[in-house]
Structures are given as C-alpha cells and as structure tokens.
Nucleic acid binder design. Structure first.
Lengths: 140, 140
DNA sequence: ACTTGATCTAGACCTTGCTCCAGATCGTAG
DNA sequence: CTACGATCTGGAGCAAGGTCTAGATCAAGT
C-alpha cells in the first residue's frame, strides 16, 4: 500500500505500473525491447513477477526517459549492466554525456521561459490598459 | 528589434530557414498546418517572400517548440493572433499555461539531473577504488 | 462451478513532427 | 540561350515511443 515499500515480495505488472507510472503496455514493451537488465521472473501460470531490483531499475529508466534519454541509449545502458562489472567507465561516459545534454536542456528551457515571460508581460500590459489598443504589432 | 538584421526586404524560404534554424521543409509544413499568422506573400513566380513579421513570429514559434509546446497549441495561438485584438486574455492564458509547464519541466529536469549525478558518482567511485569490486548491486 | 478482473502473446495501429521524393518551374550568372 | 541552383506542389515515408486489439488463460471471490 505504501508507495515506497521495500517489500521483498515480487509485484505484479499492474502494481509495477502503479509504482513507476508506466503503463502495463509500456512495461511489456520495455521488456521486449531489452530495456530491462534481467529477464523478469514468471509465476507457474506465466504472470510476470517483478523484484525490487526490477522496480528500482525501472524507476531509474523513468528518470532517464523523463530527461529525454532515447530508448536506444537506455538499452545500451541496460546491456552494459547486464554484462556485469568491468565496464563502469562506459556506463559513466554514457550517463555523463546524458547529464551534459540535460544541462543544455535546462539552459535552453530557461531561455525559453524568459521569452515566454516577456510575451506574457506584453499581453498582461494590453489587458491592464484596456482593450482599447488600436494599432499594435500583430506578432506581439 | 529583430534578432538579426531589421531589413525591410522580404526573405526567401532558404534565408528564413537559415535565420530560424527550421528546414525549408519544416517551413512549408508549418505553413500548411496553419501555424503562421498570415498567408506568406509570393513573388509573381510563386516563390515565398517572408516579411520581418513572419520571421519574428517564426522565431517565437521556435522558442515555444523548443520548450515543448505541441504544434496544436501553436496553431491555436496563431489562430488567436489571426483573429486580431480582443482575445488577449486567451492568448495570455495559453502562454501562461505553457510557462507553467516549462517550469515543471525545468524542475523535473533538475531532479533527473541530481539522480544522474548521484549515479555518476557511484560509477566514479567504482573506478576510483579500482575494478576490484566483487559483490555489488546490479542496479547501481 | 461461475463470474470477474488481471494478464498473457503477437501483431496491427496511432500520433507527432517532420523529412524526402518526383517532376516541374523560376531566376540568375555566364 | 543555357546552366544550375533554389523553389514549387502533392504526397509518400520515416522514427520514436508507445497504445490497443483479439482471443485465450489465470486466479480469486461467492
């Protein structure tokens, strides 16, 4: 019931969907695409059982996706982890490259934000001084 | 107050592409989609001639797109501007809503950034203390 | 046993936002 | 006049990232 229960019991796909914010469809899709580190365990009946590790990994995936990492990179990262220890330098490089992209993105967004804010100011002005503005710049 | 030259002469599609960073394909596409405020003027021979207003509008579009505004919203905004004065409140609302989304996005990115930074730290540590780490968390 | 809801698989389909192609035309430099 | 590059139109194609369907199976409640 708790969002952050560190329970040892495996979870169903629906529960994982709730916890990660991914849809069950997306979860199956990610698995097919090889984005998970290990194969997901199954019940005797064939239902997926996600471990806490799986969920942690997925939560990281979500963060990386949210910040714009393409699935291809995520897959590559998963592959590196799957290969086991010895390639930490590569993982580091992958993540650090992504961090740089995120930084650039934050910068760009802040610029956009100020343009938008300025524009919002233009309209607020217009409204404040009444709708009487006769001649004005259509792009404003 | 144009970003570059405040020339009164209209520009060709190629020149606008250079100035906006959009491809000529994208420029034609935007036009078809109704993302421009007015119809683009043409030469007698049928070539597009963009005014400084067109370019300014496109530069704003670029900023809005960069910050994740969907084309549909951009189109709606263009329609409001096309309708002329009187709907500034709606325009304001549209932009302000977008600004809020941008703020949320910046926030999210900063969170992602810190997760990534932490992860990078984990790998840097691993490398610093040598590749000898025997048992370790696969998700780390 | 029966009903209900969650999951299963494979694969078709969707949306967004362009990108590219074909074949024709324009316009400028030689 | 002749090239040659830039542009034109309409429409097809593409990549990413899922989403949804169909038909079957599993599991739990009554």
């Amino acid at each position: 019931m708790a969002t952050t229960e560190t329970s040892a019991e495996p979870l169903s796909i629906g529960e994982v969907a709730e916890r990660t914010g991914l849809s069950v469809h997306a979860l199956r899709f990610y698995e097919r695409e090889g984005l998970l580190v290990g194969p997901v365990q199954r019940t005797s009946g064939g239902r997926r059982r996600y471990t806490a590790f799986d969920v942690d990994w997925l939560l990281i995936c979500v963060k990386l996706r949210e910040s714009g990492m393409p699935l291809a990179d995520l897959k590559q990262f998963a592959e590196l982890v799957r290969q086991g220890p010895g390639n930490e330098a590569e993982r580091l490089q992958l993540l650090d490259a992504h961090r740089q992209r995120v930084d650039a993105q934050i910068q760009a967004l802040q610029e956009c934000r100020s343009v938008i804010t300025w524009k919002v100011g233009v309209y607020a002005d217009h409204l404040a001084r009444g709708e009487a503005g006769g001649l004005w710049d259509p792009t404003a």
